[in-house]
Amino acid sequence: MTDARTEILARVREALAGSAIDIPEPATPRDLAPVVTPDVIDLFAERVADYRAVVERCGVDEVAERVAAALPPGQVVVPPGLSIRVADAVVDDGSLTAAELDRIAAVVTEARVGIAETGTIVLDHTADQGRRAISLVPDTHVCVVREDQVVADVPDAIAVLDPARPQTWISGPSATSDIELDRVEGVHGPRTLHVLVVAGKR
């Protein structure tokens, strides 16, 4: 008996044999929009807020203060490479278990990309964002996105993201439409998403 791999590949080749195969060229619906204008930042903030996330805009010198104000009572975990100082935070060294993370109230991370059109934040879990579990289990996620990280639309984001990195695309807090197709925020992921859009470069 042939193994499954050999047989499946043989079936695929047989299924396609005899078809006149004219593989269509990939179409790019429109050009990328590399120039980020103030409109794009406004749209990003507006679209993130549409998902009932909390959105605030601030200058680079206000970030630490705004982050502190956004945090709920309780413990906070931060990734090892976070560029913002958060008082009394637990710095993740990879040793916290899921159960331990479940007792932590909030997480503060940065981000890799913000997508204006869809109001999406993409984490690629590098040092300023940390491993996936820390931005998942705590119930509040405070996420700092710099204006120069915001792109216009999905193709712009795809172009700058590295597929080798694990990624989490976040569009608002956890939600479900499973009951009568009514959207309800807050299921398993962080029920509060607080986004700080920071002007200027790091």
Binding site: T118, G119, H125, R131, R132, A164, P166, S171
Partner: peptide
Amino acid sequence: LPRSSTGERMNPYTSTWSGITPGDG
């Protein structure tokens, strides 16, 4: 997909992973 499916501009979460990432997941 999200616009066709749940009628949203983007779904709340999309996860991508490429095999194993040491120390993560």
